Amino acid sequence: MSVFLLLEGTTYACLEHERIALLQLKPFFNHYDELVDWDKPKGSDCCRWKGIECNTTTRRLVGLTLNSTRDSSEGWYLNASLFLPFVGLKRLYLRGNAIAGCIENEGFEKLSSALGNLEILDLSVNLLNDSVILPLSEFSSLRYLSLAFNQLEGSSHSNGFRWFSRLLNLGTLDLSWNPLGNDIMFQLSSLSSLKNLSLRSIDLEGELLHIQGLNNLTNLRYLDLNSNSIESILNKDETQLRLANLERLDLKSRSVGSELECIKGMFPHCLGNLTSLRELDISNNQFSGNLSPLQTLTHLHTSLSKNRLQIPTSFVPLVNLPNLKFLYGDENNMVMEPSLHTSIPKFQLNVISVKVHNISRTQC
């Protein structure tokens, strides 16, 4: 009988104070009635509510997803203190809610000590400005931070993104689609823990005078510079990228109206320094020259489409790349060589596309 009473008195529902805290959040994130099930009677299991993830043992809330649950037509200011009860929170997604900042004295700085387990924070597609940088730098447990599609400039604060050097566990940072400009390269040079960095469409332009700062990011595996207006990835003093662990590099350029904003000049030999590179996308640029910088990249598959490169019909520069599975080389210059090469390629391509308008012949 005593055993029966013990089992009947045991609850596997969420913690009551966290259930109450969720109900206090609901009015701010329920514009589209997305949270209709957040209205159960006392004792109901909020771990079963939409967007909620709980630890199966402690029943504490560990994941909270509130993406696009607020009308995005008008900016508003968040009371971040509403998240204080969720001390076990590891993942918080607030994407697409038109958050313009926080109520005075109720910002993210109030959360850093209470949410000491927070590892993933997604604040993308909001209206946040540089005032959020310093408070977020205090979340020492963060491993993933997305601030894409906001209004960050990085230069309106004395230290800008240098504050993020405090985030010693941060592996992924997405700053895409913010008007940051070239200075961001220098500001990020101390974020040595980064493995994945996305700087897509952040108004990089011309020569990247501080690109050598990225060489300090020795753990970097993925670098996205897609859709900028870069003209060169070499400094005036010819400082080069030397990211020995980089596996993916995206340098694809963008079109603005009928104009193509792209990287011009000779195919950079510094790419040959990236010896761990597996994926390279330089499409939609105006690189010229030959493919010799790729000869040392034995792990590579690549997209070279829409450039001005000279690709030999023998593919000699690529024959020693045993891991090459995909090659996209459309709209370049195919070149017939004067002598027949007998090298047997080490690669076994799954996909190859080299559509060209004409084939030229090299001189003897």
Rank of each mutant, 00 (worst) to 15 (best):
Glu279Pro: 01
Leu251Lys: 04
Ile263Lys: 06
Thr239Leu: 14
Ser253Ala: 15
Glu279Asn: 14
Glu231Thr: 12
Gln240Trp: 07
Lys236Ser: 14
Leu271Glu: 03
Ala244Gly: 03
Asn245Gln: 03
Leu249His: 09
Asp281Arg: 05
Gly257Ser: 12
Asn245Ser: 13
Arg254Met: 06
Asp281Asn: 15
Arg254His: 07
Lys264Cys: 07
Glu259Asn: 14
Ala244Pro: 03
Glu247Asn: 10
Leu274Trp: 02
Asp281Gly: 13
Ile233Thr: 14
Ile263Cys: 10
Asn245Met: 02
Asn235Glu: 13
Gly265Asp: 04
Gln240Pro: 11
Ser253Cys: 03
Leu274Thr: 00
Ile263Glu: 02
Arg254Pro: 02
Gln240Lys: 11
Thr239Ile: 06
Thr239Met: 14
Leu251Ala: 09
Ser255His: 09
Lys252Trp: 00
Arg278Leu: 02
Leu271Phe: 10
Leu241Gln: 11
Leu280Phe: 01
Leu277Val: 05
Arg242Trp: 05
Leu246Ala: 08
Gly257Arg: 00
Asp250Gln: 09
Leu241Cys: 11
Lys236Tyr: 10
Ser232Gln: 01
Glu247Lys: 09
Glu259Ser: 13
Thr239Tyr: 09
Ser258His: 08
His269Trp: 08
Pro268Glu: 00
Arg254Asn: 05
Ser255Pro: 04
Pro268Ala: 06
Ser255Lys: 11
His269Leu: 12
Asp237Ala: 12
Ser258Cys: 09
Ile282Ser: 05
Lys236Pro: 00
Thr239Val: 09
Ser258Gln: 12
Leu271Gln: 02
Lys236Trp: 07
Leu234Asp: 07
Glu231Asn: 15
Ile233His: 05
Ile263Asp: 05
Arg248Asp: 06
Asp281Trp: 05
Phe267Trp: 01
Asp281Leu: 08
His269Asp: 14
Glu259Pro: 01
Ser255Met: 13
Ala244Ile: 13
Asp237Gly: 09
Asn235Gly: 15
Asn235His: 05
Glu259Asp: 13
Glu259His: 13
Thr239Cys: 14
Glu238Pro: 09
Leu277Ile: 06
Phe267Ile: 06
Lys236Asp: 13
Ala244Asp: 10
Leu260Ser: 13
Ser258Val: 07
Leu251Tyr: 01
Glu231Met: 12
Phe267Asp: 04
Ser253Pro: 04
Gln240Val: 04
Arg254Thr: 09
Lys236Leu: 12
Leu260Met: 11
Arg278Met: 07
Met266Ala: 14
Glu261Ala: 13
Leu249Lys: 10
Asn273Trp: 00
Glu231Gly: 15
Asp281Phe: 02
Leu271Lys: 10
Ser276Glu: 03
Gly257Ile: 00
Ser276Pro: 01
Ser258Tyr: 03
Leu241Arg: 12
Ser276His: 04
Glu261Lys: 15
Asn235Asp: 14
Lys264Asp: 02
Asp237Cys: 06
Cys262Met: 13
Ser232Trp: 04
Glu279Lys: 12
His269Tyr: 12
Ser253Leu: 00
Asn245Trp: 00
Glu279Gly: 13
Glu259Thr: 12
Thr275His: 03
Arg254Leu: 11
Arg278Thr: 06
